[in-house]
Design a protein around this nucleic acid. Sequence first.
DNA 1: TCTATATATGAACATATATTCATATGATTA
DNA 2: TAATCATATGAATATATGTTCATATATAGA
Lengths: 116, 116
Amino acid sequence: MDSSPEHICADEVTISKKEYGLPSSDVLLKMCNIFKSLQSETRLNILFLLSNNDLCVRELELALGVSQSAISHSLRLLRQLDLVRVKKEGRFAVYSIADKHVEQLINVCQEHVLEE
Amino acid sequence: MDSSPEHICADEVTISKKEYGLPSSDVLLKMCNIFKSLQSETRLNILFLLSNNDLCVRELELALGVSQSAISHSLRLLRQLDLVRVKKEGRFAVYSIADKHVEQLINVCQEHVLEE
DNA sequence: TCTATATATGAACATATATTCATATGATTA
DNA sequence: TAATCATATGAATATATGTTCATATATAGA
């Protein structure tokens, strides 16, 4: 925003978290946890698959070639963060994307990568 | 999508990565790296601060109460992923947000957290 | 009921990550 | 040209994460 050749560095008195309106540490922590959950190739793949179809654990396992246990652990994390939802259908646990935010997150990120 | 009481689980023959149009492993890896970089409270705070003002390292250090070294390491990662940009102004390194995708990512995530 | 299928989860281990510490470089000021 | 300020970075260490292994539970079918 400043195009002058010399930056003016604010001092300690001028700078404080509050002036810049940072989110509360509670919100920040939750955001971290969400991004944490998106940093894994397995979980990212799960979300891509679920954004096309609701799928059960076995189907995710077959599609991704990852062990049932690993898929299940991944789904637990995504569930806890409300990024996916489950409904029990007989012996199957059918998973789906929780809401549009989740799709937006992976779409925006994919755009950023593709537009390099 | 299916509201019948019983899920029909696809078998191995039916399921394949290609049918579901998963992104290439190259793209997926880059996406992981971006989300990885957003999973840290320090880096998330840096991005919130930079989305308001371009700031030098010293200012980020003062605003966040995190060591110069830690800030600098964090900025390197964000730089490498093209989430922030630097311009040298005298002895200062002034950082700014790279593009709108970055702001979209943190905004969408914040919305998701706040709408619980 | 016995067996197979589908899923979940605790524990453990290998790997990855974040911060600190020490130090190096380059720019500014005295 | 010393001394100081601003920044960068390699190494080390403490902590976090992902997967595997073993095992438990619940449903379905024979």
